[in-house]
Write a protein that binds this DNA or RNA. Sequence first.
DNA 1: AAAGCATATCGTAATATTGCAATATTATAA
DNA 2: TTATAATATTGCAATATTACGATATGCTTT
Lengths: 108, 108
Amino acid sequence: MGTTKTEHFTEKQSEIAIIAKAMGHPARVAIIDLLLKVNACIGNDILEKIPLAQPTISQHLKVLKDANLIKGTIEGNTVRYCINESTFELLSKYFGNIASNVIHQDCC
Amino acid sequence: MGTTKTEHFTEKQSEIAIIAKAMGHPARVAIIDLLLKVNACIGNDILEKIPLAQPTISQHLKVLKDANLIKGTIEGNTVRYCINESTFELLSKYFGNIASNVIHQDCC
DNA sequence: AAAGCATATCGTAATATTGCAATATTATAA
DNA sequence: TTATAATATTGCAATATTACGATATGCTTT
């Protein structure tokens, strides 16, 4: 085991899970926060800001990219990373929709 | 290793990561979708709807509860689960804020 | 009390994730 | 061309997650 049984769930459910999972690590949240603050697509200045080894950061960046949370473009020997707005919008809408559709009535 | 180095990150970053991680499994997304659809706090009718064994579902429910995504109240020999709106609001706002603060200019 | 439900917990096997050193790769600079 | 800088990949150890059978716990009904 250890393997997720994906076959039973809808496309949408799997999509959300994959994206949420990618945000499910503080280092990756920190990277997003940093990209947002710097307000530009930085390469691995990330290394200087986040106290993890270079291979580890590279791995986290890959996870974020695979989940479409960030984009990266090669620029010489540097990579410009930036936030992929639309995926965050998707998340925001998905969660916002849940929040606003909860009915209280006989709830806990 | 395998252990996340949490000590370097902010409270907020860790909080978001924990919540996002809890949403990072399709079964848990499916449970939330179900709770929303049923529009009431059901006990383990979840079992009938989600094709996983009872202990597995119970475990997923615990993860969701620990992340404050759902609440559960005991009612006789049943548990009423329901969505914890405020945590979803928190997520929606956090991600929405990111989406709306991205600056494009020289981005990828 | 006994039987029967709904849930939780335990133990365990299979697999995934995290983190990093070492090493590769690729682009620029000297 | 050689060195240097930025990034990716590989390999591996430690730990976490997922899934479930078996079993426990705790109501509720008979």
